[in-house]
Design a protein around this nucleic acid. Structure first.
Length: 807
RNA sequence: GCUGAGGUGGUGGAAUUGGCAGACACGCAGGACUCAAAAUCCUGUGGCCGCAAGGUCAUGCGGGUUCGACUCCCGCCCUCAGCACCA
């Protein structure tokens, strides 16, 4: 007997093509329906193509999009390409190709992979950040920020990747190394463009409350922003007319200040150096310079320093304390000077020990009986110095702050710095600025946008000088203000600028007049459901929120948060439990799985693996279970019969099963528990298959709920039912909860909390505890177990459990 | 060190949020069909004792609350992820 195989390849490729041709997933801007904007983080189209991990999130959002369409929403579910950026440029250099061509090739692969996977994207809205029609508006955005004073140029120490030979944003530096090429990152003083995200810090923290985001993502952003409340105190320098501002979160420890430490990069350092210290300091600064950033920024290592020869007055004790240069003090946080309280800070303690500085204890934590030679960093305890001896820390803090009010005031600092957006590389949007000898820095007028990337660059190799500087045609231009000769800015924009506003463009991707029409923005935005990786917590997600708020303040958009609900897909590991990578040769590609087992199987398997947010290993053996489900469904279609071939009892059973399926799948879809949806289909098949046949009416319902999960199979079955094309434009069935109920329900019976059996009761009526006890006592199986026991109490939870407590 | 997530059979994972722990699936074992294999179907499948009925132990460890705890509280241990000399 030959088994009738499910011809997935034929069916799936046929429908994939037809759906695209018929544009059945196109979103209508003027729809009377309520909208639903379901978005995936758009991918970086690399040469390697998508692997099964990337598409996991796409499947979840696709199922949601298909469900919401059937649910009566006008759904916007677009896809595009975050095409600018270093990997493409590096690949182009390596292979001697043009990055335009590299991108084009990669996009073609990505797009066909998406279509093969049955993803219901609206391809009429496809965007590509490297298209001039797109980056024109990235440049426009930059100009708006510039006009508002939110984009500025500044010379300050920046992260310089020694491999890519370009600057990096703080978010792109991982443990002192480049997140892309892993090369060492060093500090360099170069003029760079920044966006003033720091103006928005408070709102970025506060508005997180409005969002339905995973807790860890919100916490991640809060941590990254790093708010810290404290007190800023000015120390006056002895014999000099200057003061050094110092930030502290522990003003009550000021009596214990025995030194000040200043960052090597501090602008005031030079004026503090006493003649006899000049050589020592010069040597120290040389040592520091040769130290890689990794060594300086990671862990708590060496705490060396050199006295500057200057002294400051402790405003509390009026005693003189020395000022030392020390590279454990960071210039890019707070004032770049710390007050050293070795008795109550681990780092200050280590520093004091290494440099023979005195240690003065200010308080003792409650557990300590006597002063030991170690730091007490605790935030509780009693003061041990006059005049506050015996006082708890927080009242003492208040008193000291009052006493020091002429030297300082409360102050809040943040770790988050302004966003560095210029890059010395080719494959990005040119920054639309022109330099003129007379007029200095002039923004390109909006009517002259886009500033096109020059195509006459022969050598993209990083040299530290922007490749755009090679193109005379590009560089030399006319000053828009005075008409004299001007030179263009040759740096390009960080790709995170492109991706910080792309979700707006999808609402109106072809508009040549504005970045997106106001009405369309009003209809579609904000994004209702956003799916993507958790690695974007402090990058893309934070930047997008900032840009949205800036555009809101400029009245371009009418909402100030872009993504209302956010979910992350977990990582899919290789079969060897390692991260999928070329290196381990464990990468699984969705198109290959689709070819072998079918895209429907792939989709449902990825959902069935476990909760979306969890990371989990791929297992092809497990996948065959889902493949079996698909085959079983395909086979059941031969058992579809007209309603009159069924008895009343069969009908009732069938109805109960299908209503139960619809009810549960709907419930799980609303909760995002896609794994449980798939197991509901399996349970349903287990029930129905035994009967071998199903009525046409109920089969129709079944195929409808299957549609978001297995869109190809469902479409084919729909066609076999001779129903109107397409199933993906039909209405979602409604479950009748009345039909799910059984006439009897099973109650678990416990004696003293231990399960001893079950009884069956009528589900239409309520039972009293006494009635239940009676039923239990007359139950042949349970009654003997009650012999010799005296029931003291009966706990009956309606419809669930009865617990008999005995003496 | 801080923050977040987690720890349930041989494996992936369920448990309507305090109410029959292990749904569903993989794997495994046995059987049916077959010359045979694949595919498919049926049965069994947490440990221990027992021929069985049944009993008993069991959700990282130790306590607690409760008629009842994977779920809540207290104290530990471990794993993963992010941040980290942030004053």
């Amino acid at each position: 007997m030959k088994e009738k195989e499910y011809p997935h390849e034929k069916i799936e490729t046929y429908w994939a093509k037809k759906w695209v041709e018929d544009k059945i997933y196109s979103a209508q801007d003027d729809s009377p329906k309520p909208k639903n904007y379901i978005l995936d983080m758009f991918p970086y189209p690399s040469g390697e193509g998508l692997h099964v991990g990337h598409v996991e999130g796409y499947f979840a959002s696709d199922i949601q999009a298909r469900y919401q369409r059937m649910n009566g929403f006008e759904v916007l579910h677009p896809m595009g390409w975050d095409a600018f950026g270093l990997p493409t440029e590096n690949f182009a250099i390596k292979t001697g190709q043009d990055p335009h061509q590299v991108t084009k090739d990669s996009v073609a692969v990505f797009k066909s992979q998406c279509q093969r996977a049955g993803l219901s994207f609206d391809w009429e809205r496809e965007i590509n950040t490297a298209d001039k029609e797109y980056y024109k508006w990235s440049q426009w955005l930059f100009l708006q920020l510039y006009k508002k004073g939110l984009a500025y140029k500044s010379k300050s120490p920046v992260n310089w990747c020694t491999g890519c030979l370009t600057v990096l944003a703080n978010e792109q530096v991982i443990n002192g190394h480049c997140e892309r090429c892993d090369s060492l990152v060093e500090l360099k003083n170069i003029e760079q463009w920044f966006l003033k995200i720091t103006d928005y810090i408070e709102r970025l923290v506060k508005d997180l409350k409005k969002l339905d985001w995973p807790e860890r993502t919100k916490k991640g952003q809060i941590n990254w922003i790093g708010e810290s409340k404290g007190f800023e105190i000015n120390f006056s320098v002895k014999d000099k007319e200057i003061t050094l501002p110092v930030f502290t979160t522990r003003p009550e420890t000021i009596p214990g200040v025995t030194f000040l430490a200043i960052a090597p990069e501090h602008p005031l350092l030079e004026t503090l150096i006493a003649p006899e210290q000049e050589i020592a300091i010069k040597n120290y600064l040389e040592t520091v310079k040769s130290r890689p950033l990794t060594e300086r920024k990671i862990g708590e290592k060496n705490k060396d320093g050199v006295p500057t020869g200057s002294w400051v007055i402790n405003p509390f004790t009026k005693k003189e304390v020395p000022v030392l240069v020390a590279d454990y003090v960071l210039m890019d946080y707070a004032t770049g000077v710390v007050m050293g309280v070795p008795a109550h800070d681990r780092r200050d303690f280590q520093f004091a020990k290494e440099n023979n500085l005195p240690i003065v204890h200010v308080f003792l934590p409650s557990y300590a009986e006597k002063i030991e030679d170690k730091p007490y960093p605790e935030d509780e305890g009693k003061m041990i110095i006059e005049p506050y001896k015996g006082m708890e820390l927080s009242p003492a803090r208040k008193k000291i702050e009052e006493k020091l009010s002429s030297f300082g005031s409360p102050r809040t600092y943040y770790k988050l710095q302004d966003w560095l957006v210029s890059r010395e590389r080719y494959w990005g949007a040119p920054i639309p600025i022109i330099y003129c000898e007379k007029c200095r820095e002039v923004p390109v007028p909006e009517k002259d946008l886009p500033v096109l990337l020059p195509d006459d660059i022969k050598d993209f190799r990083p040299k530290g000088i922007p490749p755009l500087a090679q193109s005379e045609k590009f560089v030399n231009t006319v000053c828009p203000r005075c008409g004299g000769s001007g030179k263009r800015e040759t740096k390009t924009l960080d790709t995170f600028v492109d991706s910080a506003w792309y979700f707006f463009r999808f609402t109106d991707p072809k508009n040549e007049k504005v970045f997106a029409d106001k009405e369309k923005l009003r209809y579609w935005m904000p994004v209702d459901f956003y799916v993507g990786g958790a690695e974007h917590t402090v990058g893309h997600l934070l930047y997008s929120r900032f840009i949205t708020k800036a555009l809101f303040d400029m009245k371009f958009v009418s909402f100030d948060e872009p993504f209302l609900k956010l979910r992350h897909q977990g990582m899919i590991l290789g079969e060897d439990n390692r991260k999928m990578s070329k290196r381990w040769n464990n990468v699984i590609r969705p198109d290959e799985v689709a070819e072998k087992f079918g895209a429907d199987t792939l989709r449902m398997y990825e959902m069935f693996m476990g909760p979306l947010e969890q990371s989990k290993p791929w297992n092809t053996r497990s996948l065959v279970g889902v493949r079996r489900l698909v085959k079983r469904i395909w086979r059941l279609k031969d058992g579809v019969k007209k309603d009159d071939s069924f008895s009343k009892e069969q009908m009732d059973l069938d109805i109960k099963d299908i209503e139960n399926l619809v009810w549960n799948v709907t419930r799980y879809l609303e909760k995002g528990k896609y794994n449980l949806c798939v197991s509901e289909f399996m349970k349903y098949m287990n029930n129905v298959e035994g009967r071998g046949m199903i009525t046409e009416n109920l089969w129709e319902k079944f195929v409808l709920v299957l549609a978001p999960f297995a869109p190809f199979l469902a479409e084919e079955l729909w066609k076999i039912l001779k129903k109107d094309y397409s199933i993906h434009q039909q209405k979602w069935p409604k479950a009748d909860s009345q039909k799910i109920k059984s006439a009897v329900q099973t109650i678990a019976v416990q004696i003293n909390g231990k399960l001893r059996g079950t009884i069956e009761v009528d589900s239409d009526r309520e039972y009293s505890s006494d009635e239940i006890l009676e039923i239990i006592q007359s139950d042949k199986k349970i009654a003997p177990k009650l012999e010799g026991l005296k029931v003291k109490k009966v706990i009956y939870v309606s419809g669930k459990i009865a617990n008999l407590v005995t003496e």
